[in-house]
Amino acid sequence: MKTPGGKGTGKGPGGRELTVRVKTARGRTASSTRWLERQLNDPYVARSKREGYRSRAAYKLIEIDDKHHILAPGMKVVDLGAAPGGWSQVAVERVRSSDTDPHVVAIDYLEMDQLPGVILFQKDFLDEDAPAALKAALGGPADVVLSDMAAPTTGHQQTDHLRTTYLCEVAADFALDVLKPGGSFLSKVFRGGAESSLLTTLKQNFATVHHLKPPASRAGSVELFILAKGFKGRRAAQADEPEGHDDGPGEDESWRP
């Protein structure tokens, strides 16, 4: 087939995928051209279209869950920063949520099409009344809190890191308030990992804490994910000293080829 402003795609000699080259068009910046070229050549983008996921981000959660087993049938899940809905789709499948028995509650200030099995709020999670709305929709404690929230990037790495770390911190505070004992918290952070104060809080409240970079996360991306498993519960956390394991700000060793 032909791509806008680019060469045809398909199979080359020996069945190899042909690389799509995108020409710079009037009104398109060089960075936009690079982004478009990367999208057209991304196997996860192609796979998401074939398999019906709304974004390639779905595979990040799939890979993390296949390895760390945080989602199971019947669990209640909160998805923060859900748009366009890839993580919610995976959560629905793995906890077996349905419209008649919804187990997934999602929120994003961006517009997002409804998903079967998801109670959706188009709202800024930072709004004062957002946490209460999510808790009311849950109807009880959560088993898993997911956060793929990230502040719009400025191009300044330190600023972007601090802004996204703040979103991770408020997501963690919410998780501590809604998780049941044994629950899990998974959140996006940027390169450099979580701040020491956040890591301390997570280690005090969870049995294990890891930084992860799943294969679906582009190698050149600054994103990492922090996974905290085995929520101790409020009373236990107050009594314990930090005991959780953290493998540092780099990727989980087991992801490396």
Score class of each variant (00 low, 15 high):
Ser187Phe: 01
Tyr59Gly: 01
Gly10Met: 04
Thr19Asn: 07
Trp87Ser: 00
Asp143Leu: 03
Pro116Thr: 13
Thr165Cys: 14
Gly230Asn: 10
Arg191Glu: 12
Leu138Trp: 04
Gly182Ala: 06
His68Tyr: 15
Lys11Asn: 07
Arg256Val: 06
Thr164His: 08
Val189Tyr: 00
Thr153Pro: 09
Phe190Thr: 01
Asp246Asn: 15
Leu202Arg: 00
Phe121Ile: 12
Lys213Cys: 01
Asp127Val: 04
Gly8Asn: 13
Phe190Gly: 00
Lys49Asp: 10
Val105Lys: 00
Asp113Trp: 11
Leu202Pro: 00
Pro181Ile: 11
Ala46Arg: 15
Ala171Thr: 05
Arg47Thr: 05
Gly248Leu: 09
Val170Leu: 08
Thr154Gln: 07
Val178Leu: 09
Asp173Glu: 15
Gly52Ser: 08
Ala133Arg: 08
Gly15Ser: 10
Gly220Ala: 14
Ala142Trp: 04
Thr29His: 07
Ala133Leu: 14
Val209Thr: 06
Asp177Cys: 06
Thr159Val: 15
Leu40Cys: 06
Ala228Cys: 06
His68Ala: 09
Thr24Tyr: 03
Ala237Trp: 11
Thr154Val: 14
Ala72Pro: 03
Gln89Asp: 05
Arg50Pro: 02
Lys7Asp: 11
Ser32Glu: 15
Val118Ile: 05
Ser31Leu: 14
Glu63Thr: 03
Lys180Asp: 07
Lys188Ser: 01
Asn205Met: 01
Asp148Ala: 14
Leu120Asp: 00
Ala133Cys: 12
Asp177Gly: 07
Ala207Phe: 07
Glu195Lys: 13
Met149Gln: 08
Gly27Ala: 10
Ile226Phe: 00
Gly10Tyr: 13
Phe125Tyr: 07
Tyr59Ala: 02
Gly12Val: 08
Val90His: 03
Gly155Gln: 12
Val170Trp: 08
Ala57Asn: 01
Asp108Glu: 08
Thr154Arg: 06
Ala46Asn: 05
His245Ile: 15
Gly10Asn: 09
Ala30His: 12
Ala72Val: 02
Lys135Gly: 05
Thr33Val: 14
Ala236Ser: 15
Glu241Phe: 11
Gln238Glu: 15
Ala30Pro: 04
Ser32Ile: 02
Lys60Gln: 03
Pro214Asn: 10
His210Ser: 04
Gly5Thr: 13
Val77Pro: 00
Ala150Leu: 11
Val105Thr: 06
Val90Met: 04
Leu61Cys: 07
Pro131Thr: 08
Asp252Glu: 14
Tyr109Lys: 14
Lys232Ser: 09
Leu227Tyr: 10
Val209Pro: 00
Gly15Tyr: 11
Val77Gly: 02
Gln238Lys: 15
Ala72Asp: 14
Ser97Pro: 01
Glu63Cys: 03
Val222Leu: 12
Ser187Thr: 14
Gly86Ile: 07
Pro257Phe: 07
Arg94Asp: 04
Glu195His: 12
Ala130Phe: 03
Thr164Met: 09
Ala172Tyr: 03
Ser217Asp: 01
Lys76Val: 08
Val144Leu: 14
Tyr53Ser: 05
Gly220Trp: 06
Ala219Met: 11
Lys7Gln: 09
Asn41His: 06
Gln204Phe: 03
His103Pro: 00
Gly15Met: 10
Ser55Ile: 13
Lys229His: 04
Arg96His: 14
Pro257His: 12
Ala132Cys: 02
Val105Cys: 02
Arg50Trp: 06
Ser187Val: 06
Cys168Gln: 13
Arg28Val: 15
Pro84Tyr: 10
Thr200Trp: 09
Arg218His: 13
Gly140His: 05
Ala130Lys: 00
Gln122Cys: 07
Gly183Asn: 04
Gly140Trp: 07
Ile62Trp: 02
Gly5Trp: 13
Gly6Arg: 08
Ala72Thr: 06
